[in-house]
Nucleic acid binder design. Structure first.
Length: 314
DNA sequence: TGCCAGGTAAACA
DNA sequence: TGTTTACATGGC
């Protein structure tokens, strides 16, 4: 698909029905699993016996995979389920890249941990969640929709809206007796009208935003490549900010979870405010000025700092 | 019950 | 340029 990152050649091994992805030393499968289990209402993957199951959309195909930790967590094992084992090397690479991107395996966390040692809040976070990665949303349309769906509502309801949206317009595949859902594609949504989303029970504005983003993407005016080619975080943020329904929070959220820009920073995030309030024992939520002061040392790790602090809440 | 949710656009000063 | 308000509904 479109998550072709520059990977070291030895970052994974191919074993026919299983791909073995090597992980950095600063990695904990269990911590990432804990994060993924934060909602019982997640509809895009399931977790059973410390393994993750999900369907991955490929160029013109689907792979259903089980993701688990190798003994001693030296590697992640990706096993293909049913008859979904892809034969073409390009598709196998696509799956490996997708999972590596999902778990953010290509980022070296050593500098972040080193910086966090002297930060009052991050030192606690790193100690509590050592090995956690910024679990991403590799699909740009999914990341944008999730950002829009989650605006101004509690996380539980956001998951409900996502489930309704996915089960109404996404694709499903059955494999080994289980049903797996995949997020709708822009072309599934762009032809719809606001009335078609009426059953989801969200604001008319949210419906308009989703349709608008789907249209921009089917027109090729909004892609991961265009955002990366913007050349800087600020320019990419500006590209997104100009789209109806996307403000500073959603822009930075998407640049953080999907484009993996390390300095992306959703500074207006209520969850971040609550985490800081909780950690520092404040009476009220911190002001923007206070957050800027507290985060002054996080340069180029703002996204990781935010992700770790969120873990204190959810 | 009422207030707050992993905000944004539009209206207004 | 900065501040206020409507938006819809669920969770607690």
């Amino acid at each position: 698909m479109d998550q072709q990152q520059r990977l070291p050649k030895d970052s994974w091994e191919d074993h026919i029905h299983t791909l073995k992805l090597f992980v950095p030393k600063e990695f904990s499968f269990q911590e990432n699993l804990n994060y993924l289990q934060r909602s019982p209402n997640e509809c895009l993957f399931t977790i059973r016996n410390d393994s993750i199951y999900r369907a991955i959309p490929l160029e013109d195909d689907v792979a259903v995979i089980e993701v688990s930790a190798e003994n001693h967590e030296q590697a992640i094992l990706v096993r293909f389920l049913g008859n979904t084992t892809p034969t073409e090397p390009s598709k196998r690479t696509e799956v490996a890249n997708y999972v590596r991107d999902w778990f953010d395996l290509n980022t070296d966390l050593v500098p972040f941990y080193s910086m966090a040692e002297t930060d009052p809040m991050l030192s606690q976070a790193v100690q509590s969640f050592y090995g956690l990665r910024n679990m991403g949303i590799p699909d740009l349309f999914e990341a944008l929709c999730w950002g829009i769906l989650g605006q101004q509502i509690n996380l539980a309801y956001a998951y409900t809206l996502k489930r309704r949206f996915v089960e109404a317009f996404g694709r499903r595949i059955e494999c080994e007796g289980e049903v797996y859902w995949m997020f709708p594609r822009p072309e599934d949504i762009a032809p719809l009208r606001v009335e078609d989303l009426g059953g989801l029970r969200m604001t008319v504005k949210k419906c308009e935003y989703l349709l608008g983003v789907a249209g921009l993407m089917t027109d090729g005016k909004l892609t991961k490549e265009l955002l990366l080619e913007a050349g800087s975080l600020k320019k990419a943020e500006k590209q997104l900010d100009g789209i109806r329904g996307i403000g500073p929070w959603t822009a930075n959220y998407v640049l953080m979870r999907c484009l993996r820009m390390p300095a992306a920073f959703p500074i207006d995030d209520v969850g971040l405010h609550n985490a800081i309030k909780h950690l520092l024992g404040l009476e009220a939520k911190p002001t923007k000025k206070e957050i800027l002061e507290l985060s002054a040392g996080w340069t180029n790790w703002e996204s990781y700092a935010t992700f770790y602090l969120w873990r204190f809440l959810y």
